[in-house]
């Protein structure tokens, strides 16, 4: 039976698409636990009635006009692609399953 930290590390790694080995998970779990323990101090702060600060600006309503800008040439878009096929990005065969 894995420790709760090990469980969390494994589950979170899967969610983040980080393929970690068991050994890595065992190294990370105590580090993770220590970091979270250190961060527990946050729970002592009284935040009753405090609005969350979601960004560092007080800007709102920033928009642009609906005017086209030049798209990139396809060769430039695909230049860095590890698997370019006929103008597409190639990836391992998969069937559906986005959102």
């Amino acid at each position: 039976m894995d420790s709760p930290e090990l469980e969390i590390v494994k589950r979170t790694a899967a969610l983040a698409r980080l393929e970690i080995t068991d050994a890595e998970a065992r190294t990370l779990a105590p580090q993770f636990a220590r970091i979270l323990a250190q961060f527990q101090v946050l729970t002592s702060v009284d935040v009753e009635g405090v609005e969350p600060m979601t960004g560092a600006t007080r800007l709102a309503d920033v928009t642009r006009a609906d005017e086209p800008r030049a798209s990139l040439p396809r060769a430039a878009t695909l230049a860095n692609a590890p698997d370019e096929r006929d103008g597409f990005y190639g990836v391992p065969k998969t069937i559906g399953g986005g959102s």
């Binding site: 961060f39 946050l42 729970t43 702060v45 935040v47 405090v50 609005e51 969350p52 600060m53 979601t54």
Partner: peptide, 13 residues
């Protein structure tokens, strides 16, 4: 909420 939500509020403080 316990971590991220709370951190945003402390950030405001």
């Amino acid at each position: 909420e316990a971590w991220y939500g709370r951190a945003l509020r402390v950030r405001r403080l």
